[in-house]
Amino acid sequence: MRTIRVLAVTALAVLGLTALAVAQSTTTFTVGGTVSVHGGTKAKPKPGGLSFTFDVADPSGNQSPPVQTYSIMYEGGRLNTGLIPGCSADKINTPATPTPDVCPKGSKMGAGRLDALIGAAGQPASSASPCQATLELYNGGKGHATLFVSSELATCPVALRQAIDMQYVTKGEFAGLRFTVPEMLRHQVGLDITVVHAEATLNRIVVKKGKKKVGYIESTGCKDADRDLVVTFTDETGASFPAQKTLGRC
């Protein structure tokens, strides 16, 4: 168990309540992001950086169920996961207290934050405890990235430190990262952890290979004039909910 400490008050806040089944169709998913570079082709890509955000809400005011799997896909780009040093989720999670301090220099490629609710899905969100956590992103080695999630008792009822393996995936003109959130980051002491807002930035990283400059993130152009972002949220029942946003000129 990677939990450093859990405050009993979190459980007392919903003691005696039974989590009600929530029709996930009532949950709204809003996504957004930016890409710092335009143009490029597969033969002559352009290096850049990118960011993404998402918000999850139930218009009825109840806490939504946790999301189990995320797929974050951008049109007209690619990641060169073999370009910089890698640091796997297993490596970070190996110490008794997981830490990215074990990662090699140059492997970090981004950062962000999230807001979550810790309570009972289906109950009023106002009865849940708020939680803020930080995100750190590392290259995970060829075909992978690593997401490190950490929270402190000053801003969250639960202090957690856990790394998540992210798989680099491609589908047609889209490329991005897919990952499954481990059980301990979805449930604690019989309560649900629902992420309601997240934001992260992947930095512009350029490495010189001979006379050529190669980007960790590269724009390869789009078939149309616009670049789309598609984030698919999959809940614990296996139901998937895609959300799409056009980010502007590709």
Rank of each mutant, 00 (worst) to 15 (best):
K91W: 00
L147K: 02
H197M: 08
S129G: 04
V230D: 10
R178G: 05
S64E: 13
H38F: 06
H197S: 15
R178E: 15
C131P: 07
T246S: 15
F233A: 04
F233N: 08
T10K: 02
S240G: 07
L135A: 11
N80M: 09
L191M: 14
S25L: 08
G32Q: 05
C156F: 10
G110F: 07
G32L: 09
C87D: 01
T237G: 08
E152F: 10
R186T: 14
R5L: 14
V158W: 05
Q68P: 04
K212T: 15
G215W: 01
K213A: 09
I193Q: 14
G48H: 03
G190Q: 10
S51F: 04
A200F: 06
G143Y: 07
V35S: 01
M73F: 11
M166E: 15
S219H: 01
T53L: 08
T234L: 09
I217A: 11
G77T: 04
G112E: 12
H144G: 04
E75W: 05
V22D: 06
S129W: 05
K208R: 14
G119D: 13
V37I: 13
L17T: 14
T97D: 00
Q123R: 13
T81H: 01
A21F: 04
A8M: 11
V230Q: 12
L160V: 13
N139P: 10
P45E: 00
E75D: 13
P65H: 03
A125S: 15
K209V: 15
G76W: 03
K108S: 13
P130W: 05
P130R: 04
C156W: 07
Q123M: 14
G112R: 11
V149E: 09
L160F: 12
A198F: 08
E75F: 03
C103T: 10
S36E: 01
P242N: 11
V37Q: 03
V22Q: 00
L15N: 10
A21M: 06
K245G: 11
